[in-house]
Design a protein around this nucleic acid. Structure first.
Length: 278
DNA sequence: CTTGGGACCTGGCTGC
DNA sequence: TGCAGCCAGGTCCCAA
């Protein structure tokens, strides 16, 4: 499932191959893929534009185009971008034709992914919260944003308007690393807990990028290779297995209808004691 | 406005 | 062997 580390990996591996190239055509095999405008208009506007840069914002990939437009791709659950694939790509939804006979195939077997072509990228990504790996993201910013929400901290971490790019897997990993139960209220975390959580989020994301993302389901890198970050998971998708720290069996609880895995011993569900009791 | 829950999507897996 | 139902989760939409 593409979250920040997976999308960042795709951006890094795709950029050197496609930046500077031009779209010579596009085959949309699934009209539902294109959001906002018709397939015809999408094809007409895209064709002929060169890719000036490739950026990532949260889980979105943004192709900055030569006429000022932005091609924005969200892979959702099962989307993948394959560069010059050999043979038939299963579940191909769109084929981008680039100069120098480059083909970029968008495959997405659950068809939740979205493409859009806009003049102003902020229309799509403007509401996203801060980038957790940016230098300007600080523990204080995390604290202020969490303090506004009386919701489970797990739900807060996966809310893209609070913090961008963190999804279900890495939220579980960060909460385990910080020893915080997923159902703890976001606004009720202590200063120390937020400091630890801040470091955990960044460490978990950086480590996953180093491993080229996690191939737990259908995630593939543009060259078709797998990521390796899933081998570092300590809690995500490990329900029923022993905790790596204390051997207690890992449990699963639904938070906002999403599976959350946690160690009931390492991540107890108790609110932190107030800083100044009495 | 805030919060929570369901819908969308598809295929692998489990249990009867 | 067949089949119903669960499960995966990013985001949108609706209701309380």
């Amino acid at each position: 499932m593409p979250e920040l580390p997976e999308v960042e990996t795709i951006k890094r591996e795709l950029s050197p191959q496609v930046v500077g190239q031009s779209f010579t055509g596009v085959d949309i095999l699934d009209a539902q893929l294109v959001s906002g405008i018709s397939v015809e208009e999408f094809r007409r506007k895209l064709t002929g534009q060169a890719i000036q840069s490739l950026e990532r914002r949260g889980k979105y990939l943004i192709f900055e185009l030569s006429k000022g437009d932005s091609l924005i791709i969200h892979l959702r659950m099962t989307g993948a971008l394959l560069l010059n694939p050999k043979g038939i790509v299963r579940h191909a939804r769109a084929i981008f034709h680039l100069s120098h006979d480059i083909q970029l195939v968008f495959s997405d077997f659950r068809r939740l992914g979205v493409l859009c072509l806009v003049e102003d990228a902020d229309v799509v990504v403007g509401k996203l919260g801060p980038e957790p790996l940016s230098e300007s993201f600080t523990p204080d910013i995390l604290a202020r944003r969490l303090a506004k929400h009386h919701i489970p901290v797990k739900a807060a971490l996966t809310d893209q308007t609070i913090i961008a790019g963190v999804g279900n897997m890495y939220a579980d990993e960060a909460l385990f690393a910080a020893r915080i139960h997923p159902l703890r209220k976001a606004h009720a975390l202590s200063v120390d807990e937020i400091q630890t959580l801040y470091q955990s989020i960044r460490q978990v994301l950086c480590s996953a990028i180093d491993s080229k993302g996690a191939s737990v389901a259908t995630y593939l890198r543009p060259d078709g290779q797998l990521g390796m970050a899933q081998f570092d998971f300590k809690i995500a998708h490990r329900g029923g297995q022993p905790c790596s720290l204390c051997a207690t069996l890992i449990e699963r609880v639904l938070v906002r209808n999403r599976s959350s895995y946690f160690c009931p011993r390492c991540q107890p569900l108790v609110e932190s004691s107030p800083l100044f009791p009495g």
